[in-house]
């Protein structure tokens, strides 16, 4: 088991967002967390990354308790996040953005090599390496955000709504890359999506979050044909 959430409760001030969340991620799999707006999907990721720490419960990564660790410590253990809305550093160049992804790494040569790899995944980034990140289009920013997270060589990649606001053709490309990363590098992927149909098609397993509670879980295949899931999240 790579990641385990055990009875996690998270609050924003006095407002409880996550209720006794239990969730497991196995090494090498793509898992997806689907749910509607405000269900607590992003908060789950923020709790894992230590930005909005869980008030109670345990989060185990590689068997280690991480729920009380500082965000930078969690990154150093191998968890990288691509947050919702991409959050590119707008005035840093694309190259500098990628460099920041590797902030905690010291192996300069390997960083350089990884950067070349990212450029081979998305050649457009290489063409614009010296331009500010803020100049990129939404789709390019999403590619850059994923590459930046990968620069840390994470064991677990947290992806928050990578399809948001993007044209279908770009979304398709990004999901292909996500699959490729999972296959080629055995990077475990935790995908949060509103687009349930798309997410369940590439994931191995899925969880459905409703009002901060896990309402349903199972293999992606079963969820994809589940009557309730189809009605609630696919508009069928």
């Amino acid at each position: 088991m790579l990641l385990e959430l055990l009875a996690v409760n998270t609050f924003y001030g006095n407002i409880q967002v996550l209720y006794d969340l239990n969730l497991t991620v196995k090494r090498g799999e793509i898992i997806t967390l689907i749910g509607s707006n405000g269900a607590g999907k992003s908060t789950s990721l923020m709790s894992i990354s230590g930005i909005v720490p869980a008030r109670s419960g345990k989060i185990l990564f590689d068997g280690k308790e991480i729920q009380n660790m500082a965000p930078e410590k969690i990154v150093s253990l191998g968890i990288s996040q691509v947050p919702e809305g991409r959050h590119i550093f707008p005035d840093l160049t694309i190259q500098e953005n990628l460099n920041m992804g590797a902030f905690l790494r010291k192996d300069k040569q390997a960083i350089q090599k990884d950067m070349e790899y990212m450029y081979s995944l998305f050649p457009i980034l290489k063409e614009r390496a010296d331009l500010p990140g803020g100049n990129l289009s939404g789709g390019e920013q999403q590619m850059l955000a994923i590459c930046r997270a990968l620069m840390a060589r994470p064991k677990l990649l947290l992806l928050d709504e990578p399809s948001m606001g993007l044209a279908p053709i770009i979304v398709k490309k990004i999901f292909e890359i996500v699959k490729k990363i999972n296959k080629d590098h055995n990077t475990t992927i935790f995908l949060v999506e509103q687009n349930a149909n798309l997410a369940l098609k590439i994931a191995h397993r899925g969880y459905v979050l409703e009002n901060g509670r896990i309402a349903l879980q199972g293999s992606a295949k079963n969820l994809l044909v589940d009557e309730n899931v189809r009605k609630a999240y696919m508009g069928v």
């Binding site: 990354s49 930005i51 965000p71 996040q81 959050h87 550093f89 005035d91 997270a149």
Partner: peptide
Amino acid sequence: GQAMRATSQDKKMAMLVGIN
């Protein structure tokens, strides 16, 4: 220096890439 600029532009994201 780059980390300083990154932090001034987006503090939350700076934390997410591991900047203290």
